[in-house]
Amino acid sequence: MSGTLQVVFSGRRLLFLVTAGGVFVTLSILVFMIVLGLPLFTSNSFSLILTQDWAPDRGFFGIFPFICGTLAIVTLSLLLAFPLSLGNAVLIHLLLPPVAAKFLHRVVKMMTGIPTVIYGFVGIFLLVPFVREWFDSGSGMSILSAALLLALLISPTMILVFVESFAAIPKSQVRAVAALGGNLRQKLIYLYLPGAQNGILTGLLLATGRALGDTMIALMVAGNATAQPESLLDPVRTLTAHIALVMAADFDSIEFKTIFACGIILYLWTATLTLTLRFLPYGVLKSRLNRGLS
């Protein structure tokens, strides 16, 4: 008897169970959403949900406008944040004198600690009125406002990864380029950008994941309109905001079931990003690093 007890409670077994529990919960998130959204799949209306407009009064429960809204905001924020992050990473690693570079690096690290709800809050009272006055259209809550704030939210992630991958480039190569008389621009184009391409891709994918998963900025400053957006100044609703907004509805309605479709889409998108990150060819970077050290 004491023998079996010992086996069951042995440390290793216990730790394994804990770890397996984590795996179980991660998978059950997806299973739960599929089970609760099941009527959507069985009644053959899933393709309709993915492609139709959202007009509950006319019987349309499509989340297509929200998919478009999400993609529009994420794409625009990446387009804004990528050059911004690259510029800052170059500043920190290459251009600025040590003291100033350290300061900028500190500020970027601090930015990772700013809560998203605070970006949203400041966005409503500072950025939205500005966009409203400047472009003279509607309420100011729009794709543009949300993308600007989101760019600010995802930049620190990218900058930190970029700086790290710049720093991983072997010193011997840096010196070799310097010895050949390469100036800063040539170093950047022929050494740093090609050498850090895996790191740059990693940063981009991580930032995309953060942008896709953000709820508060989109909910607070994107306007949450259900119509298909036509310009950058149109208000949109994202998939995340849709989940937050429909909660109040009746639990048995199709309206309510659509939030599980949103959840499943978000889960699958972020899972794809994670898997892509996992299978990036890091080997190249690592072998270069080792050669540089030896």
């Binding site: 984590g22 995340t240 978000l266 889960y267």
Partner: peptide, 17 residues
Amino acid sequence: LTFDLLAGVPSIVIGLF
């Protein structure tokens, strides 16, 4: 890999769970 997946799940989806 599974814990990486969990880290990537948007917080609203965790709330939905």
